[in-house]
């Protein structure tokens, strides 16, 4: 508990740093002493605060979504970006952009969620049909499925001259987050909290369908609920910031190595670490090449792929 409070403080510190990093001059002392001019206050309220909140909600949500995905697929490598979820949500976004570009963000999110739900369900269906001889097959299937789906997305984006727009909103970039454009992420927050309430169910489901049935759990219902959480969290992040790859892979696995998988204990850690990691990646992205920005998603992509590779290699070693 003490450790958790310490981690909470560290994350809070990262959040505060995140609030005061940027091109425009906003300082803590000015805000508190009342010396802040109108512009500073506006930048703070319209851009900085929403951005930091979005980072926290997206990071926590994606880390928890990754954990749930790993429980449902019963595989350490499964997460929204290795299960076709992210790509399906992006396809949904493109469809909205093509057919009804004026829909409010909330409706866009719901359409993207529906696509994500369909794509992730397809992934789990394929897993059921394919005889899995190696745990590494699971993310491979997910990556292939994601590849096929994003090929469709690219094809239509190309045909309708939307490649550039698509590139902009899939890059995992929080610089476009402004007041009024990130609020759907609060849905991700609600779902993250709901997952914590259902934590024991997800742990039991992660033990496998036989164990779950033996313990009287309605496996199908938990599976459906988990899929909805994963799809809606992913969709709300994709709609607001773009793709945040690997966060659902890195965080749950690190926490699992240290503390195991009893989600009632570990989910708060997973959510907090996810938030902290995205905050840090965003701060790094904003400072390495200032005044220009590297999207947080790209920073995550670099860290994440290295981590993923390391995990695969360690698996190989353990299996050998």
């Amino acid at each position: 508990m003490k450790l958790f409070i310490l981690a909470l403080m560290v994350t809070l510190a990262a959040a505060i740093v995140s609030l005061f990093v940027g091109v425009s001059d906003v300082s803590l002392s000015a805000l508190f002493s009342g010396e802040a001019d109108e512009k500073m206050l506006m930048v703070f309220a319209v851009s900085r605060l929403p951005r930091t909140i979005a980072l926290v909600l997206a990071g926590a949500g994606m880390a928890v979504a990754g954990t749930i995905m790993q429980m449902l697929a019963r595989n350490r490598f499964a997460e929204p970006s290795t299960a076709g979820t992210v790509e399906s949500a992006s396809l949904g976004m493109l469809v909205v952009l093509l057919l009804a570009p004026d829909l409010p963000v909330m409706m866009k999110m719901l359409v993207a969620s529906t696509f994500a739900l369909a794509g992730t369900s397809l992934f789990l269906l394929i897993l059921q049909r394919v005889p899995l001889r190696s745990p590494i097959l699971v993310p491979l299937i997910g990556l292939m499925l994601g590849g096929v789906i994003s090929a469709c997305t690219t094809f239509f984006a190309y045909r309708f001259d939307l490649m550039q727009a698509m590139g902009a909103w899939t890059s995992g970039d929080f610089s476009t987050v402004l007041q009024g454009r990130y609020e759907v992420l609060w849905i991700a927050f609600v779902l993250t909290v709901a997952s914590y309430v259902a934590a024991d169910r997800f742990t039991v489901a992660g033990m496998g369908q036989d164990f779950a049935t033996n313990l009287g759990l309605h496996y199908g219902r938990v599976l459906a609920f988990g899929l909805v959480v994963v799809s809606m969290v992913t969709a709300s992040v994709v709609v607001t910031a773009g793709i945040l790859p690997f966060i659902g892979l890195i965080v749950p696995n690190l926490v699992s190595i240290v503390m195991g998988d009893k989600l009632r204990h570990t989910l708060p850690w997973i959510a907090l670490s996810g938030a902290a990691l995205v905050l840090v990646c965003d701060i790094v992205g904003r400072t390495v090449n200032a005044p220009f920005e590297v999207p947080a998603g790209s920073v995550l992509g670099v860290i994440g792929s290295l981590f993923f590779l390391n995990m695969l290699l360690r698996r190989r070693l353990r299996a050998a």
């Binding site: 429980m71 039991v204 033990m207 496998g208 164990f211 195991g260 998988d261």
Partner: peptide, 16 residues
């Protein structure tokens, strides 16, 4: 089992 549980936590789930 891919879920990483301690022996005690696993046994405790028998009371679920």
């Amino acid at each position: 089992m891919t879920t990483r549980l301690t022996v005690r936590d696993l046994v405790a789930f028998g009371r679920y």
